[in-house]
Structure formats: structure tokens, C-alpha cells
């Protein structure tokens, strides 16, 4: 098992003819992802890495019946792209694009809810079910099959931790990037609920950061609902309040979302909090050996 995507997932790439779209299509294919179609308005009829390109999602859908999509669409057009994908009936949508207006993000997420679909991101590195399907931009050499489920706000930081885990001999079941924006489709709680139910996952690692209250909420959920062990690492311990640290969400405002509050909430829910990224794999050893 795995969550959200697996070896049977048929993938469509939107914005496949762009720089990033083409590069990561190649990467995803190299990992073994079953990409069935690409979409790029005005570029229909071409091939990218032997994948047929269509002008619209509907035409790609009729031909290939994809069940998951990944978007490399420029920010001003991302909302339209997601709505187009939802209209076709696709239920798993990964939005890699950075810098999408927050009102557009709210709209697409609200529409996804109505359609019973999930939006991963925006501004996410995607989802990867190790050895089965990669729907994202992560450097995949670090993702080998194993018992650790990972959910993270930040991309690079989670690669770091996954690489450390692999080095220590632990692979990953599914890793999910929530996205660095203020408004994203999935919460820690949404993903942890799935990982708790996933038979392949024995240990959950969450990679959070300062700002917002998503980690605190997850702590509350874990306390009451999660039996599997959970390890957390949180970035931003040394960040000064009022300064936005890159991610739209990573800012301590009005005393909310501080590092201390998050650590306290997580620890009181029985979560082990690592002080430095590489300590996550040390803690994993305690649970998995």
C-alpha cells in the first residue's frame, strides 16, 4: 500500500512543454512514473519524451483517462488549470507552481473540496510513493521503499531528512509536500490520518516550521487518534518575530506559531521532536530497530 498514488496511477503533466515541465517529466519517467499525457495550450500534437501533448485537459482525458495530474503552469494561469483538471474529474492534483495569488489558491481548494478531489500544494515538491510513483520534483535517488511516512511543509529540508534516513538504512513509504504557501490544500492532519491507516507505514515523520497553527492542530489530532510513533523536526527556532522567512506561512505574528508553542504541543501529544535535522534518523532507529 501507499497513500494518494501508487504503481497503478496514470499521470498527466500540465505545462509539459515548459522548461520545468519537460525536465521533470524526464525525471519522473526515469523513476518509473506512468505518465500517459501532457497538456500545454497551443502545443497540442507535439510529443515530449514520447508523451503525447494536448491543448486541453478534456481532450487528454478522453484519450488516456489519467487519474492524477501535476501542474507546472505559470502562477497567473494556475487557477484556471486546476479548475480545468477538476472539471475533467481528476481527483489528485499536485500544484508545483510558486507565487500563486492566495485568493486563487482558496478558490481552487474550495472547488476541489466540492469535487471530492485533493489539491497538494501550491508551492509543493509533490508526492512520492517510493518505488511506485513519483508525482513531483524531489531528487528521487533518496526515495527507496521502506516503513517511514513523511509529511513536510518544506521541500529541500525534507529531502535532507529523507536522505539521512536512507543513509541510516530506512526507506520511505510515501512522502507528501504540503507546500510553502499560506493556503494549501492538505494539512498535516489530512496526511497523518492517511499514513496512520497505511499498512506500509510504521513510523511517521513530520517536517514543520514556524508560523501558522498547522503543527499545533496536528498535535491535537495525534494525541487522540494516532497509534504509530511520530517524529517531528521544526525549522525556524532562531527566526526573529515579524520577519517572513521565505515561505508565506513562515512568520511569527501576534505571538502565534512560535517554535516553542509547536514543540510543546507536539511533545505533549507524545511526538518526539528532533533538535537538528540529522537527529531524525537517530530517533527513527529507536522505533524501527
Amino acid at each position: 500500500m501507499a497513500i494518494f498514488i501508487d504503481e497503478n496511477t496514470r499521470v498527466m503533466v500540465q505545462g509539459i512543454t515548459g522548461n520545468q515541465g519537460t525536465f521533470h517529466t524526464k525525471q519522473m519517467l526515469a523513476y518509473g512514473t506512468n505518465i500517459v499525457a501532457g497538456v500545454s495550450p497551443g502545443k497540442g500534437g507535439r510529443m515530449v519524451e514520447k508523451i503525447p501533448v494536448y491543448d486541453t485537459v478534456e481532450s487528454a482525458f478522453l484519450e488516456h483517462k489519467p487519474d492524477a495530474a501535476i501542474l507546472f503552469v505559470p502562477a497567473p494561469f494556475a487557477r484556471d488549470g486546476v479548475l480545468e483538471t477538476l472539471s475533467a474529474g481528476i481527483k489528485v492534483i499536485v500544484v508545483v507552481t510558486e507565487g500563486i495569488p492566495v485568493h486563487d489558491a482558496m478558490d481552487m481548494i474550495a472547488m476541489a473540496r466540492l469535487s471530492g478531489a485533493i489539491v497538494v500544494g501550491p508551492n509543493t515538491f509533490g508526492v512520492i510513493s517510493s518505488g511506485k510513483c513519483k508525482l513531483g520534483i524531489m531528487p528521487h535517488q533518496y526515495y527507496v521503499q521502506g516503513p517511514v511516512g513523511v509529511v513536510a511543509r518544506s521541500g529541500t529540508l525534507s529531502y535532507e531528512i529523507v536522505a539521512n534516513l536512507k543513509e541510516a538504512g530506512y526507506g520511505t513509504s510515501t512522502a507528501v509536500g504540503l507546500g510553502g504557501d499560506r493556503v494549501v490544500g492538505l494539512s498535516f492532519t489530512d496526511v497523518i490520518r492517511e499514513l496512520e491507516a497505511d499498512s506500509e507505514t510504521e513510523l511517521i515523520v513530520m517536517v514543520g516550521e514556524i508560523g501558522g497553527t498547522a503543527e499545533e492542530e496536528a498535535a491535537h489530532y495525534i494525541k487522540n487518534n494516532v497509534k504509530k510513533p511520530v517524529i517531528a523536526y521544526l525549522a525556524g527556532k532562531s527566526a526573529p518575530p515579524g520577519k517572513r522567512m521565505g515561505h508565506a506561512g513562515a512568520i511569527i505574528e501576534r505571538g502565534q506559531g512560535t517554535f516553542q508553542a509547536k514543540v510543546q504541543a507536539l511533545e505533549s501529544a507524545g511526538v518526539r521532536v528532533a533538535e537538528l535535522p540529522f537527529e531524525v534518523s537517530y530517533l527513527a532507529k529507536e522505533f524501527l530497530d
Binding site: 518544506s154 521541500g155 529541500t156 516550521e209 514556524i210 523536526y233 525549522a235 532562531s238 522567512m245 521565505g246
Partner: peptide, 24 residues
């Protein structure tokens, strides 16, 4: 660093080892 989370974690680690970052 590349990535906001990574950049933050880098600052945290510099602090941890007793240094002082000049920027994010």
C-alpha cells in the same frame, strides 16, 4: 540555501553550533 525550510534550518544549525547568521 535553496528552499525556505532549508534556509531556516541552516540558520538554526549555525546558531546551534554557536555562530551568528548575517541573513536568510
Amino acid at each position: 540555501a535553496n528552499g525556505a525550510g532549508m534556509a531556516m534550518a541552516t540558520l538554526d544549525m549555525i546558531h546551534y553550533y554557536g555562530g551568528r547568521p548575517a541573513n536568510f
